[in-house]
Amino acid sequence: MVNGYAPISLREALELMAAHKLTPYAGGTDLMIEEKREDSFLFLHKIPELKQVSDDGEYIRFGAACTFTELLEHSLTPALLKEALSRIAAPAIRDEGTIGGNIANGSAKADSALIFFVADAQLKLAGAGGERLLPIKDFYLGRKRLDRRPDELLVEVLLPKKWLGSYYYQKIGARKALAISRLSFAGLLTIEDGKIAHCATAFGAVSDVIIRRADIDAMLIGKTPAEGKAAKAAYLAAFNEAIIPIRGRVSAEYRKTVCLNLLGDFLERFGI
């Protein structure tokens, strides 16, 4: 085809990526907003390897070209991810948009990426030099800057299963559908044997990159809920320092206040 390729295997796709300057086209729902087309497109919709979903015991593995709708309909997709996916735009966008595109577009507003952040997902990239696995947090280098070489494709998202059962999720948009996140928050918290076994939080659409501060969340891990309550003020204060919001469609002050409100509510929900 003119100005594009539609490979039918991952191998073919990687060879094309190595040989040409191409823009990977997953769902197109971000890419097509731009009027100008500089590069040819590499269409990913015919590559079966990028469409698979499996459970390897430790991770649920999602092919990067799975659409939001496909994952909403898939039995292996955890409830938290489904909740976030169901709030993305509207059916037509969910039908075409993919998790790989959502992540690799590099936006801190990406609703599926928030869930992969809070769950400390791993990303698998493949390129001329082979495959590599990296934590999603390391993939984002800054605003719209990603750790992806021009020949590389994001091929798989590995979502750790362990702590997903007990979650808190909020998205603030300007309306109930067709809403770009003005702020989003996800939290995971598990209490086992009377102690906080796991605590993870992530803040989307607040800063250039989704905020995930495992070091601060660690303040609560290993504590009883009562001890957690005692540490709450310090914990909130640490996030108050850590969250440096940017202004956009809403003010920085609004973003900060709501982040902290939701963080407090999240803890309260778990009796902390």
């Binding site: 509207a90 300007a174 309306r175 109930k176 559908a177 067709l178 770009i180 469609r249």
Partner: peptide, 11 residues
Amino acid sequence: LSDYIIPTAMD
């Protein structure tokens, strides 16, 4: 239409 918000069927 993404920056000037009018109601959808869900609002």
